[in-house]
Every structure is written in C-alpha cells, then in structure tokens.
C-alpha cells in the first residue's frame, strides 16, 4: 500500500530540489516540434510536462544505446560494470512504468545483467499521470495504471499533485517530511479517483485484448501481413523506440597495436535482414513480412515459451515512429479481430 500525500503545483520547485538532493534529474525535454527526449535537467522550466512519449523510452537510462562490456590490455581483462551515481528519472507515464517492469524482469532473470541492474538500482523513478492522445492504447494492454516499477508517482489533481510513495527509497526522500508536503483528506482522494475515471473516458482508440493470443495464432496467414510487409522499409525504427525491445549486437573492437581492445554492445533490431541470418547464408526470417509478423507476435502474443509474455505496453511509439505507417497496432489488431468474427459468422451460418 502506497503512502499518500499531496503538494501544491506552486511548490513544484521544492519537489524538484528534493529530487536534485537525490541525484541528477532526467526528465522529458522537447527536442523538435513533435518530439521529446529524456535528458538531464537543471531546473523545472526545462521539463516538457506535456510530453506524452519521448522518442526513446526509459530503457536507455539503464541499457544505453551503446556501451563497453569488457576491455583487455595484454593479458589483463577489465570488467566495465558501471558504478553509476544516484539519479532521478522524472515524468514516467504508466505505460513506460509497465515497460520498465518487463525490462526489470528480463534483465534480472539469470544470468542477471550487472550493467542494467547497477544503473537501475541507482535510480529513483518518479511517475507522472497523463491524458491519452489518439495513439495511446495502454488501456487495451492493461498498462494504463501505475502498478509497479516506480518509487514515487504524481497524479495531476488540479492545483495539487497527489503523491504516492511506493518504496523505501521513495520514503527516505520525504524523511523528515518537508513543509510543502501536505496530508490528504477525503476530498483529495475523490479528486484522485475523478482524475483516473476521466482519464479512462479519454481513450479514443482501443481493442479487446482477451483473445490476442488466439488471434495471432489463427490469423498468421491473414492477407493483412503481406499488405503490411510490402510497405515495410525494414528500417528498424519500431524496435529502438519500443519500451520492451531488448535485443543487442555484440561487437569486438580491436586496436591497431594488437594488444588491446574492447567488447561493445549496441542495440540491434529483429527487423534487419542480417538479424536472423545464420551460417550457410540461411535466413530463417528472410523477408520483411516474416520479420514484421515476428515482431508483432512477440509484442502482442508473446514468445512460445513458458513465460508467453506479451510485451506491448500500448505507448504508441512504434505507431508514430514508423515512416510507412504500418505499426498502427490498434488498426491491425482490429482488422485481425474482424477477420476472426467473419470466420465465426461463416461457421454458424
């Protein structure tokens, strides 16, 4: 059970200073007319509170785009597990918290990823409520409410922020309790409920997700896939922007002296033709259709393993980042579901 308080939006600077007392604050910053990015900030004015989705999701804070794993010099091998400074990640919306939760599970499953975990453990995560735009479908994926992966969560209840503290890391920040932090009453609890009720009503695009697994199994040869595959650029934009895509490439970098070098890892994408290429020049996902279908299936059906975890959190990043407009997940799922309903009708006729 979270500990709950509130504070006035006018006191946000006090809250910001409190976050700074923990470590460097990272928050969404506007980087172009349409885009935002989690960047280090020094004052509240730099924060884009209106940001719904950043170009890259929070995973980059813990699993950076490129990093050194080990390096060697002569016979000495150096481990590059980071010793990160404490930091704050502010402004994480419920879908991204869900994504973070999935990444936490994946990177802590054995063998645990020491690089990811070191950065993750040094980070205080502050969530923030949001109102959906036309691309948000977290309500369909069950990721529309903060469940875990946050230390502190702020809900916008008008003049105040309703403050939830979920972890001891979060609790410590408010000990002793600063003056700007106020106790809540029934009215505040009502405002909190009202916010989330109104938020639920604001979704414009969604689908029923209870039959997703079935849909992806039964509609694997649906003509939709060929149609999308023909438009697919195999540019891979959909995967770096996904909060739960974790695939990487490992590259050994030699130095000219022949006596030293490093092993780097860099984000990779299942949408590239080389990703599933194996020896003998065989490729088990040779065409854009195969790769796109594979990605959709992983996100909305899950791998055929014992976890069977659906990894889509409904943030809409792929939808807005696809130059070919084929990552319209809501539209595709609705079309596949419509085909299912058609075939059911045929059976009963």
């Amino acid at each position: 059970m979270d500990i709950c308080y509130k504070f006035s939006k006018e006191s946000f600077l006090d809250f910001f200073k409190l976050m700074q007392s923990f470590g460097q604050v990272h928050a969404p910053v506007r980087v172009s007319e349409q885009s935002f990015s989690f960047r280090p900030v020094e004052k509240p004015e730099q924060i884009a509170f209106e940001a719904l989705r950043t170009i890259l999701p929070p995973k980059k804070m813990f699993f950076p785009q490129r990093e050194t794993l080990i390096s060697y010099s002569g016979k000495e091998v150096k481990d590059h597990t980071p010793e990160p400074l404490a930091q704050v990640l502010f402004g994480v919306h419920p879908c991204d918290l869900a994504g973070l939760g999935i990444m936490d599970n994946i990177f802590s499953a054995g063998p645990p990823d020491s690089h990811y975990l070191a950065r993750r453990q040094a980070t205080l995560v502050v969530g923030l409520s949001c109102m959906p735009d036309k691309h948000c479908f977290c309500n369909s994926m069950g990721t529309d409410f903060p469940h875990s992966a946050y230390d502190i969560f702020l809900t916008d209840i008008g003049e105040d922020y309703y403050l939830q503290i979920a972890t001891t890391l979060g609790e410590k920040l408010f000990d002793p309790k600063p003056d700007f932090i106020k106790t809540i009453d029934d009215q505040d609890n009502q405002s909190y409920k009202d916010f989330w009720t109104n938020r639920d009503k604001a979704f414009t695009s969604n689908f029923k997700s209870d039959n997703l697994k079935q849909i992806f199994d039964l509609e694997k040869d649906n003509p939709v896939w060929e149609e999308l595959g023909k438009r697919c650029l195999s540019c891979g934009n959909c995967t770096p922007v996904c909060p739960t895509c974790y695939c990487f490439d490992v590259i050994d970098v030699a130095s000219l002296d022949g006596n030293s070098g490093s092993r780097e890892r860099e984000w990779d994408s299942c949408q590239f033709t080389g990703f599933a290429k194996v020896s003998g020049d065989f490729n088990f996902r040779p065409g854009p259709v195969d790769r796109l279908k594979f990605w959709y299936r992983h996100k909305l059906h899950g791998f055929d393993d014992s976890y069977g975890l659906k990894t889509c959190v409904g943030c809409g990043r792929c939808t807005v980042s696809c130059p070919a407009d084929i990552d319209d997940i809501v539209g595709v799922v609705l079309r596949l579901q419509a085909s299912q309903n058609e075939s059911k009708k045929d059976e009963s006729a």
Partner: peptide, 19 residues
C-alpha cells in the same frame, strides 16, 4: 550494413522523413 535509421534513432533524432 544496417540502415542509417538505426544510427539516427540511437542518437534520438526527430525523424525528418516523418516530421
């Protein structure tokens, strides 16, 4: 031989093709 889009996204640029 991966596409330029990968390097562009890793730098977190706004997409000039889309925007």
């Amino acid at each position: 031989h991966k596409p330029v889009c990968l390097e562009c996204k890793l730098k977190e640029n706004g997409c000039v093709l889309i925007e």
